[in-house]
Nucleic acid binder design. Sequence first.
DNA 1: TTGTACGCGTTATCAT
DNA 2: ATGATAACGCGTACAA
Lengths: 338, 338
Amino acid sequence: MEAVTIKDIAKALNLSTSTVSRALRGSYEINAETKKMVLEYADKVNYSPNPIALSLKENKSRTIGVIVPEIANNFFSQAINGIEDVANKRGYHVVIFQSHESYEREIKNVQHIIARKVDGLLISLSGQTENVSHLLDIQAKKLPLVLFDRVSEKIEAHKVVADNFDGAFKATEHLILSGRRRIAHVTSPSLLSISQERLMGYKTALEKYQIPYDESFVKYCGFEPEEAQKLIFNLIENQKPDAIFTTSDRLALDCFSALKELGISVPDKLSFIGFTNLKVAHLLAPSLSTIVQPAFEIGQTAAELLVDLIEKKQRNAEHLKTIKIPTEMVIRKSSDLS
Amino acid sequence: MEAVTIKDIAKALNLSTSTVSRALRGSYEINAETKKMVLEYADKVNYSPNPIALSLKENKSRTIGVIVPEIANNFFSQAINGIEDVANKRGYHVVIFQSHESYEREIKNVQHIIARKVDGLLISLSGQTENVSHLLDIQAKKLPLVLFDRVSEKIEAHKVVADNFDGAFKATEHLILSGRRRIAHVTSPSLLSISQERLMGYKTALEKYQIPYDESFVKYCGFEPEEAQKLIFNLIENQKPDAIFTTSDRLALDCFSALKELGISVPDKLSFIGFTNLKVAHLLAPSLSTIVQPAFEIGQTAAELLVDLIEKKQRNAEHLKTIKIPTEMVIRKSSDLS
DNA sequence: TTGTACGCGTTATCAT
DNA sequence: ATGATAACGCGTACAA
């Protein structure tokens, strides 16, 4: 009973496939009655065009590929939300791949995704990615490409990012204005663009208030389970910060956990601000002020741009651009974490 | 430079497309030299077959559809992780749709996914889904179908779930054995299979220790932001429980948050256990003992089963089965949440 | 061993 | 206004 095709309709109605096709897409001049008949019958038998045949014909898959480091990461799952939102509205499928923060897997994903003939690619770089030749390959193939969130200076491409500099600047400034001076910065691997941009914001804020920059107050933390704990203990014991600016839910939570073990009270001894998304962070760490990451909007914007690129709807789509999505600061005043 | 096809190779090598095709798939008897030549050339020009053409020919998309309530939910993102893990290994794409806990959107997703000609469907039901006729439609179309985590009694199909009864029983028993008697149960909407199964586990444990079951100690909580808070305040003030058994990260965190506002200490006045995944929960709520949800394994198992169904590799795939994945209990002893 | 021809579902082009 | 045909890329039955 399945898979009713144009051919079936044509046969049933004693028409040619071309007539049916025209009737279905309404376009060409066609006898109103014939058209009506076809439409009714098609509706009755629940006809829907075979997207695979369409793809073959148009040499398009109406699919966009997405490569992210980790789907079970609040930032990326929200970003994917935004991507799917736009993609579905505009008639595209989304296929998702994870690099699991591995450069090699990222390359494999890129190859796989190219072989699968997606119409365009959205990518957020792994924590290990330094070389971007796999992305240059994509550009060489004229495959529409948009980098989001974790981008690279080494490639000229369309990019959608959060305004990390501004967010980090405001975060640091907020801590300074609360009277803190020994402000530590616990952040993601130094290879990442987001780390670099945030570090610049942090440094610039220190400069503005003439607080000397001390490298030992900045800790880059990878994705291994144990890594953060050690590093944070170390930081707190040696540098004795009076504030910490962290850059993700995970790092913020790791910090809180460490502080709890050390019996250090927040925000009395330590003041906090982080780049986070998670409501969880707010719920359990009421003293954590936050620079809200515009994950959903980044996803939406990146997808919108990519689809425009694919469909060449934007005249100025050819000239590269980097879109910065603003962040929002949420200040928490409660002090009842203990 | 793109899109090199069999035809191109044939032309370049002065062969027919069929010869090239045969050489590529290695199968048929073919001159060893010709074969080698073709393979080398194909490799050189970086040939890869057009999956869309394949799909059209075989009437298969090598794509599986997944419908979940919400991707930005730790349980489901981990489950999707498991699904992708298996799917990619076995050469399938995964397309993900979200019902956002809405019955209507779930139906639309199902329709859309059918029109897109996926080879099979994995679904976890929305919190509103009572009627499953959209799933019966799928079965009528002979489209392989596997339900996971949130399933329904109203449809006979392959199902993969956590052992919710067992987990809930052990959770409740643990609280009882710690000396608690006024054990509340804060859980997801009563429509959901997981809620029902867990309630049974809870009840059975109470029975075993001859603690009378009091309906007012069970609170079903939907997905609206404010809902949980009110309900929990109400529960604590009226029923004055000495323990709470919750069934998700979100609900557990909402409870902790409410308790903090009420100034109730954990675990002195209240003891806790929850069905959770999140490391976050452990980090910030050391007093929260946990029944670990086997999200990743559920995803893997469901995907494995679905692909088997699609490829009919399993002889006994025809006869329906429900696979239960065991849960694991992690007891936290710390009492330093305050 | 290799080449020719067809079909998968659709639309565009060129008749009629 | 409508029908016949080619084409998208591939695999394969059949012919040579």
